[in-house]
Computed example of a mutant assay.
Amino acid sequence: MRKIQVHLKDHSYDILVASGLSRKLPELIRPFRRQGKTLVLSDTTVHRLHAPVFAKLKNADTHFFFIKPGETSKTLKTIEQILSFMLKNRFDRSSLLVAVGGGVVGDMGGFAASLFMRGIPYIQVPTNLLSQVDSSVGGKTGVNHALGKNLIGSFYQPKAVFIDPEFLKTLSNKEFQNGFAEVIKHGIIRDKKLFLVLEKNLCRIFKRDPALLSLIVAENCAIKAAVVSCDEKEQGLRAILNFGHTFGHAIETLTRYRTYSHGEAVMLGMKAATLCAASLNLVPLTHASRILALLIQSGMPEKAQLAPAAVYNAMFLDKKVRGNKLLLVLPTAIGSGTQINSPEKAAVLAGIRAITDG
């Protein structure tokens, strides 16, 4: 078992990564349960695929709430339904919420926990690659808005994160690829050694080699934990983890979360950001070429059918915009990046035109 700690001033917590960990969930959760009830939040697909996990969690004080899978459920309306369910079933401040699912379930579970009676504890049990390597760690919670992705939410840290790489066996290739975008992101912007592992072992990774996947999941959690420990609420360093996301979120918003998965949009965003960096002479062309090659080999989609001007304008709804000025994370080499405030419009549009065909 690999234990990784997120070091925070008032609420540090552990991330446990081990194959078969989901079979021990009842005993792992027990120390966090107080006198109140427990809500297990998930989606209908995860419940269907992993019914034995949920069966082990059943007891008189545990209730289950299942949402429809996908970004279209990530709304304030669904949050209200969750909170209403908890109120009707007499949950209180001693209650616990356990989010068992992917990024949508984890984000919404954390947000609901932060709101219910001004905050109850919650635990993350991520079940797909995206949530295991990225979204379950760091306490970003929230929902989407018609004008943009993740614009409504809070920073609210879990009490623990329990990760079982065996969950990844049931993912479709598309869903696995969706999460792999975040793995690539960490390699490009933060860890040269990880990038080299991805370059050399892509076939083994997509064949779901168990030992390699466990290593990759743990290493990505360690990268994210280290950054969050330094900058919990994204006042500086943590923004580096948004590489590709300003472009990607614009694509998701304009296509109403129906055309591209989050990972596909972020892959396109990383391509745009890399070419933007190349236009600004920030990254060596040899490094840019390797980044683009890995993205292509990992299944990056073709150009989005969107107008470049529309994507550019949508980027200004990003949470990192300050004073109507873009803040972009751009690579400077494989394994490192920088934040550029108000980059040249021509360079940004050059990146956008490379990923759009509108």
Score class of each variant (00 low, 15 high):
residue 64 F to K: 03
residue 71 E to R: 04
residue 8 L to M: 01
residue 30 R to Q: 13
residue 15 I to M: 01
residue 8 L to P: 01
residue 25 L to I: 05
residue 35 Q to N: 01
residue 70 G to Y: 12
residue 35 Q to A: 13
residue 56 K to Y: 04
residue 63 H to Q: 10
residue 73 S to D: 04
residue 21 L to D: 14
residue 66 F to L: 11
residue 20 G to C: 13
residue 27 E to Q: 15
residue 85 F to L: 05
residue 15 I to L: 08
residue 80 E to R: 09
residue 39 L to M: 06
residue 71 E to W: 04
residue 61 D to H: 04
residue 79 I to V: 15
residue 63 H to K: 10
residue 43 D to A: 10
residue 75 T to G: 06
residue 16 L to D: 04
residue 20 G to S: 12
residue 85 F to T: 00
residue 72 T to W: 01
residue 21 L to A: 14
residue 50 H to G: 09
residue 75 T to A: 06
residue 72 T to C: 13
residue 43 D to V: 05
residue 44 T to V: 06
residue 82 I to Y: 11
residue 41 L to D: 02
residue 77 K to Y: 13
residue 30 R to L: 07
residue 52 P to R: 09
residue 60 A to G: 09
residue 59 N to P: 02
residue 18 A to Q: 15
residue 44 T to S: 15
residue 84 S to T: 12
residue 56 K to L: 13
residue 80 E to D: 15
residue 26 P to I: 10
residue 20 G to E: 12
residue 12 S to G: 15
residue 45 T to H: 14
residue 39 L to C: 06
residue 67 I to C: 08
residue 66 F to S: 07
residue 43 D to S: 10
residue 62 T to A: 02
residue 68 K to A: 12
residue 47 H to T: 09
residue 25 L to W: 02
residue 25 L to T: 08
residue 17 V to T: 10
residue 79 I to D: 07
residue 73 S to F: 04
residue 53 V to N: 12
residue 34 R to C: 01
residue 79 I to M: 11
residue 12 S to R: 09
residue 24 K to M: 06
residue 71 E to I: 07
residue 26 P to G: 05
residue 68 K to P: 00
residue 56 K to T: 06
residue 71 E to K: 01
residue 49 L to I: 06
residue 63 H to N: 06
residue 39 L to N: 03
residue 70 G to A: 12
residue 49 L to N: 13
residue 84 S to V: 00
residue 46 V to Q: 05
residue 54 F to Y: 11
residue 30 R to N: 05
residue 79 I to F: 11
residue 35 Q to Y: 02
residue 33 R to E: 15
residue 57 L to S: 00
residue 5 Q to R: 13
residue 55 A to Q: 15
residue 52 P to T: 12
residue 23 R to Q: 14
